[in-house]
């Protein structure tokens, strides 16, 4: 993030999603949202007087995710409590939009996608619901406060990029790799743990009805007939070696004969 020198203050909202570990049941912050939180905190640090707020839709047990965002440096947090974890993206966006609509954030940030469901819809949905311009997959952003504008480079297919200018207020989804998300500061985490998080129940905000129903699940078919090598590690290594030789792809040790 590069701020312009003529900075005024900004109100930043960053959307985070709790992701549940299938083995432990532990809730953690969606990997991609870490980059959005870091970007929000960097803007807040560089633009005096700015405030960053994190918002999350999720169960009570996932509150630690918001506390992590506070530990990373956001000023405020809002927990929209919803006990289930199967809301559709437009339902999550509707809840967040209903909660923040009147708060007039200058910049709304979200991760580019969630690591569990991988819908990749939230940012564009928020923009539509809040009537803001939107750029997705942002890998570089420059704020020009005097012009009330943000210039971004966003990632296209194959590593190409497009440069866009958006007037503020705007919604951006942040691509991974734009920054290195910091570890939460211990002092801030302790502070966050002592603090009651502002909460609002999703039912109070109103959850719109689902638009899809899960009918059935199945195992994805393989595209190749994977041969699973059996036995001890040495047996598997020997079998792989034989397969590679049969396929005309023999490995040669460094300095070996051609």
């Amino acid at each position: 993030m590069t701020p312009s020198p003529e900075a005024m203050s900004l109100r930043i909202l960053v959307c985070v999603k709790p992701v549940q570990d299938s083995a432990s049941g532990h809730w953690r912050m969606n990997h991609y949202d870490g980059f959005a939180v870091e970007e929000a905190v960097r803007i807040r640090e560089h633009v005096p007087g700015s405030r960053a707020e994190a918002v999350m839709v999720g169960p009570e047990a996932a509150a630690g995710v918001l506390r992590r965002a506070l530990g990373m440096g956001v000023d405020d947090a809002l927990h929209i409590r919803e006990p289930g974890s199967t809301l559709e993206p437009f339902q999550i966006a509707s809840l967040i939009a209903a909660a923040v609509r009147t708060r007039n954030h200058d910049l709304v940030l979200a991760g580019v996608v969630s690591e569990d469901a991988a819908h990749g819809q939230l940012g564009a949905l928020m923009a539509e619901m809040l009537d803001r311009p939107c750029a997705t997959a942002v890998v570089r952003l420059v704020l020009e406060m005097r012009l009330s504008r943000v210039t971004v480079d966003r990632e296209l297919e194959g590593g190409a990029r497009e440069r866009l200018e958006l007037p503020l207020p705007a919604v951006l989804t942040i691509q991974s790799g734009i920054n290195s998300p910091r570890y939460p500061a211990l002092s801030r985490l302790l502070q966050a743990n002592r603090r009651a998080l502002p909460t609002v129940e999703a039912l109070v905000l109103g959850i719109p009805p689902s638009r899809v129903a899960l009918v059935k699940r199945c195992t994805p078919p393989g595209t190749r007939h994977g041969l699973v090598l059996e036995g001890r590690t040495e047996d598997k290594a020997r079998e792989l070696h034989a397969i590679l030789r049969r396929k005309g792809l023999p490995p040669r040790p460094a300095g070996g004969r051609p």
Binding site: G226, L229, T233, A237
Partner: peptide
């Protein structure tokens, strides 16, 4: 594993040294 012709269920730090 569904996209592979040959599947080796091993820790790479154990398997690769043995293969080398």
């Amino acid at each position: 594993m569904r996209e592979a012709d040959v599947c080796i269920v091993e820790d790479l730090t154990r398997f690769i040294p043995v293969f080398l």
